[in-house]
Design a protein around this nucleic acid. Structure first.
Lengths: 169, 169
DNA sequence: CCTTAACTTCACACATTTCTGAAAGAAGCG
DNA sequence: CGCTTCTTTCAGAAATGTGTGAAGTTAAGG
């Protein structure tokens, strides 16, 4: 691991490879958590980029995939509010940026997902009735989701506070 | 266990179909949350069953899949601690049971998953260093996971309390 | 022991998902 | 306008995932 100042070429390659290793590991974890592969890789690359933003071409080059793949991945990420698209003024290039702190929120998927669970569970309770073991079991799950919905709100508030305090204003 | 009435047949079929509809909807939601298809269906069926437990044969019949498929699904579910296997004493039958309340915990994946995130993020911070924007960004994510780890503990305690009060005694 | 029921493993077929190359679509700039 | 550059769409190829039948493994019960 003794990399002297031989020349910039190998040095840069090393660095790029190291970044790539982290990106792929990060992406793998996102995949495990249920995110499709390419969106995961794109997101990890963005988060690991200096500006927190990259162009389509940069992503395409760095991840060694076609522009088409990047396009699809970005569409997905934008849909779940993990990246925003910006037009660079004076160029046709589009720049994709990670939503700095909102991605923590997204991880807990509070918005729609939780509500969907609630309605599904409510239907189950209705169907089986509280006079059956199944009904009561499913009702408990419903209550759990209601509880979560309530609690996660204040949890994120506490996070915002913690964050402000720790990382400075 | 026996057929008495003439209309029992249609009545039972109705009921079974209704259960099936709920099971499939439930399963679909689990799939959307990242669970493989067959494990999702098996889990939903178990949770919707009267005893919260079914045998391999019952699952196979109810879900209209081969025993092999059930086997694979159960292996997955056991691995993520969503079901436990029980041997029925006087028989070769195996019985799979939902982990009553522990599945709520599992949903929040506190155990291993969160730790894995932490180590991945730590590696990222180390690699980029806190003197880079990337490093700081990833560090913030690391802090978020540490925060979550801490908070989810007390959240689940509160849930246990809420639950005991509401359904307990 | 041997039989047999119950579950598991494995190789393969079928389906779905995911990525690519090609072509069409937008938007700056001369 | 029309040229050029970047992005998106789309059909299809490649990769992955998923479920089945058949053979293998384990253990109950004669």
């Amino acid at each position: 691991m003794d990399e002297r100042r031989t020349d910039n070429r190998t040095h840069d390659d090393e660095a790029a490879a190291a970044v790539s290793r982290f990106v792929e590991r990060f992406a793998a974890q996102l995949v495990q958590a249920g995110m499709p592969r390419m969106p995961a890789r794109v997101f990890a690359a963005l988060l690991s980029s200096e500006q927190g933003a990259l162009t389509s071409a940069e992503l395409s080059g760095q991840l060694k995939v076609s522009p088409a793949a990047v396009s699809g991945a970005v569409r997905y990420l934008a849909q779940v509010n993990l990246v925003s698209r910006e037009r660079e003024p004076g160029s046709r290039r589009e720049r994709y940026r990670v939503q700095g702190d909102q991605w923590h929120n997204a991880l807990l998927e509070r918005d729609t997902s939780l509500r969907n669970w609630q309605t599904t569970m409510r239907e189950g309770v209705e169907q089986f009735g509280l006079d059956t073991p199944q009904g009561r079991r499913i009702n408990e799950t419903l209550e759990f989701f209601l509880f979560l919905d309530k609690e996660l709100g204040s949890l994120m508030e506490r996070w915002a506070a913690h964050r402000a305090e720790h990382l400075g204003d």
